[in-house]
Design a binder for these strands. Structure first.
Lengths: 315, 315
DNA sequence: CTGTTAGCGCATTCAT
DNA sequence: ATGAATGCGCTAACAG
């Protein structure tokens, strides 16, 4: 843009040395109140802001973080990222965005690029097949989303709790034949954990489980929902909003006796299309904020690598 | 990450001077083929990549661009961004993402941040009320999406063509009472242009227009669609996929005589939910690519500020 | 408390 | 064709 001022200019304009300006800039101690104020005044007056590249070169942080989402159009990840961004902006971090498309190879490529770029940290939305080994170099500057791994900071959803809450509610409503539409167990969180929570609840309450685990896509919900519906079924629990939307479409086209749907995920889209569906909010928004805060804490003050679980809540 | 090598190291390792390495790095002429190859070998062998901050400080580009979307969860913008990203990566640009939430104030804040950040360029998704004056400083390094403005590079959709194609098709199918569900005319492109194209077609073919322009949201489509439906109506044209989804929900809940729906936008969501709807693809994907290419051309070779319009096509 | 000095990694003269 | 020297804007070590 315009030819910007440097600390040298500020120093000259306020009649002090460069290093004093630098000290003021970094809130270092050892500057008299008077000079500090004077320098700050000059900086404000001229709208001065230090060159990021120069700072970066001096070993300081570049104040850039990367966010690697699986897909730009993931409903849940969008909600998380939307709360993440303001947190990052506020602390002066610029977020560069990348899309993994559920490909380990793409994640690897992106990380390679990032390693050449003096990145402060990475927030990575996990998925099935992600290779923990390749994340090792990033151990201290990474926050894993929606997945946890030994030795890494992470923000997870309470998969088990979310399913339990929904099952409990359905059970209280009198449902005794609750089917389950989910995701293959190769997916640890959305797949395995949620399915196990379902099975566990069934066991405890002596219900007969009836599940199918086709995948993550709407179409898969649509195509496979029929398999878990029989005459007795009165309720259907879906592992995700996306599956619930697919299932709903099928049910609209193939009417049957009333069926109470329930799903994990509190996306605006599902709320609009099917407000009658019982949903639990896995806390996507809160997760985004927590992840941002955790990452900043890690990279600025070497905070411990916490494994955070966001509590689920009926919505 | 690791303590990276510098051109000094490469110079030492290949037995040449720093400046020679620099020359090789920038593909400058005046280096003998032999030394060039030798230096390149050493660089490859050690996986050398120059410090971006150092280059940036030397007045070179930082190779960062900003993408300001209106909303992270906009279906159409997602499609555009998804094609934009690979183009940018390929050229070594890192995209930092920001969300305007349709707020001029937020755009201004983001641009302020960016002006302190030695950004190469900005891709801005336009919206109603965007203030061209505040974009002036960015004239040469900005590409406006979905909106055009005097003196700025832009990538627009063919609003007029998209509507015309759909109307033509509906007309050919025999429809003579085609209603329109759109966006207020304060929105120049999605609002005004599409509505005018609708009116224009009606005039030319002596149809009686019947339109309502509630807004962009699904709920608005749902709430207002009834107003444009009467006994004679056989087709409904929606200005966007989002409106079409809202309208469809209403129609499912309030059955009537068959109504052919049509809409502008070729999003996967609509295709899944309502494949029966006639849609035209405004070319979101192609638009993303064009925008990335245009921006790169501008910032690397001061290419002219083209105003590109993506042709619409039946999908 | 404050100014001076010396680099960070690179591109760019200017010599050779 | 190539190496040595200079400085980008900043922080850090060292003097006063």
């Amino acid at each position: 843009m315009q030819n910007r001022l440097t600390i040298k200019d500020i120093a000259r304009l306020s009649g002090v040395g460069k290093s004093t300006v630098s000290r003021v800039l970094n809130n270092e101690s050892g500057v008299s109140e008077r000079t500090r104020e004077r320098v700050e005044a000059v900086m404000r007056q001229h709208g001065f802001s230090p060159s990021r590249s120069a700072r970066a070169m001096r070993g300081q942080s570049d104040k850039v973080v990367a966010i690697i989402v699986t897909r730009l159009d993931s409903l849940s990840e969008n909600l998380a990222v939307q709360t993440m961004l303001p947190c990052l902006y506020e602390q002066g971090y610029d977020p560069i965005m990348m899309e993994s498309q559920f490909s380990t190879k793409l994640v690897q490529e992106h990380l390679d690029v990032l390693s050449h770029r003096n990145i402060d940290g990475v927030i990575l939305f996990g998925f099935t097949g992600i290779d923990e080994a390749m994340l090792t170099p990033w151990r201290d500057t990474l926050v894993l989303m929606a997945r946890d791994a030994e030795g890494f900071a992470s923000v997870c959803y309470d998969d088990e709790g979310a399913i339990r809450i929904l099952m409990q509610r359905l059970f209280e409503q009198g449902h005794r034949h609750i089917s389950y539409l989910g995701v293959p167990e190769s997916d640890i969180t959305t797949g395995l954990r949620r399915h196990e929570a379902y099975l566990s609840f069934c066991r405890q309450h002596e219900l007969t489980p009836n599940a199918v685990l086709p995948g993550l896509a709407m179409k898969q919900g649509y195509d496979h929902v029929a398999k878990v519906l029989n005459e007795e079924t009165t309720a259907l629990l879906c592992a995700t909003d996306t599956l619930a939307i697919g299932a709903s479409k099928y049910l609209q086209q193939h009417p049957r006796t009333p069926l109470q749907l329930a799903s994990v995920g509190n996306t605006p889209l599902l709320k609009f299309l099917h407000p009658e569906i019982l949903t639990v909010d896995p806390g996507y928004a809160q997760a985004g904020k927590q992840a941002a805060l955790q990452l900043i804490a890690q990279v600025t003050q070497h905070a411990e690598l916490r494994q955070i679980t966001i509590p689920a809540a009926l919505s």
